[in-house]
């Protein structure tokens, strides 16, 4: 017993023991939180999707209903059908991507007041969702901001639709809000990626007489390929799970209820937790499916370019390693002194 204790003490004091201790100590809390607020609810979601229950239903009163909730998701008109609204958001996401790519390219050339423009376009991203709801309820109200501007351009009020009530346009109004909110953030992302391109490349291209479009096509686009791909994937999964704009602006009224808005209502207003869980599981499966398909698709498209990029990455890594080594050597000699 005594030797065992002494051994443990010795082990704790050893390097190896210290390493294990610090690894455990530093990962316990984040892993616990991750488990508690992500994986435990995830497991519960799968389990609840087979039950008929409310939040307040005691554990023993919950009724097991098998696949009924899943059948309901596909049969109820308001559930699965709501996914078709994603098409609007997907088109919006593509417009947003093209627009922000264009603006980022413009900003990457010499522009006066670059920071001002960048700031103005980025700021909407920092406004809270609920504030955006109020701003755009106001913006789209009959005879208010948007109508006034359009009237100023010579369009009569009678020919304008009710932006949030008319089912022909209201989803587009919401999509426009989403584009308004995120295009500046996207643009900043792309500007960052473009800036990381070697400036010498542009100079060389200009010397060779390449015009702006050629510069964009052959220098900018290849170098920001990864981040554009990432954004395409994000925008498709994002449009499947579109939620905020309809939730805060129209509350899902007049045919603007996206899948998640409907799910949110079923969960927190009607308290049909089982059905809502089934809806969540179905959409998660669709999102995973989409993500995997897209990854494969882009891998297939970029299979030729891969080798080229790899060598570039390898070169970069080598330079980085050399620099780090030089620095380390310097520090070592300094430490010795």
């Amino acid at each position: 017993m005594a030797t065992w204790l002494a051994d443990t003490k010795k082990w704790i004091k050893s390097r190896k023991g210290q390493q294990v201790l610090i690894c455990v100590a530093f990962t316990v809390i984040p892993l616990f939180l991750l488990f508690l607020f992500t994986y435990l609810p995830f497991g519960q979601m799968v389990k609840f999707s087979f039950y008929k229950m409310k939040y307040s239903t005691p554990v023993d009163k919950r009724v097991f209903v098998g696949w009924k909730n899943y059948i309901d998701v596909f049969n109820r008109k308001d559930c699965f059908g709501a996914l078709k609204l994603s098409v609007y958001y997907c088109i919006g996401a593509i417009i947003q991507l093209v627009l922000s790519l264009y603006l980022a390219t413009v900003l990457s050339f010499k522009v006066k007041g670059e920071n001002l423009f960048k700031g103005l376009m980025f700021f909407p991203y920092l406004i809270s969702g609920i504030a955006i709801g109020f701003i755009f309820k106001f913006f789209y109200t009959r005879g208010f901001v948007l109508d006034t501007i359009l009237q100023g351009l010579g369009i009569s009020l009678d020919s304008l639709p009710y932006w949030l009530k008319d089912q022909k346009v209201n989803n587009w109004s919401l999509v426009a809000t989403s584009v308004w909110r995120y295009f500046g953030q996207n643009m900043v992302l792309f500007v960052g990626a473009i800036m990381s391109v070697d400036a010498e490349l542009y100079e060389a291209a200009q010397l060779d007489g390449a015009n702006r479009f050629q510069q964009f096509r052959h220098i900018i686009l290849p170098s920001i390929k990864t981040i554009v791909t990432l954004n395409v994937i994000l925008s498709i999964t994002g449009s499947l799970s579109a939620f905020e704009q309809p939730y805060v602006i129209t509350d899902g009224a007049n045919g603007t209820g996206t899948y998640f808005v409907v799910m949110n209502e079923i969960a927190h207003t009607s308290q049909k937790v089982g059905l809502a869980s089934a809806m969540a599981v179905v959409l998660l499966l669709i999102i995973f499916g989409c993500t995997i398909l897209q990854k494969l698709f882009f891998k297939y498209i970029f299979r030729d370019a891969e080798s080229e990029e790899e060598s570039y990455a390898a070169k970069k890594a080598r330079i980085k390693a050399e620099k780090a080594a030089a620095k380390a050597n310097k520090q070592k000699t300094m430490a010795k002194n």
Binding site: L34, L36, F42, Y55, A280
Partner: peptide, 26 residues
Amino acid sequence: LIRNLFLFASLLPGVAMQVTVYNIMS
């Protein structure tokens, strides 16, 4: 594994998770 657990968690949409996080919170 830990890195992947965090990465996977970031794929889950927050609104969907709140359906059952609410149950845990209560």
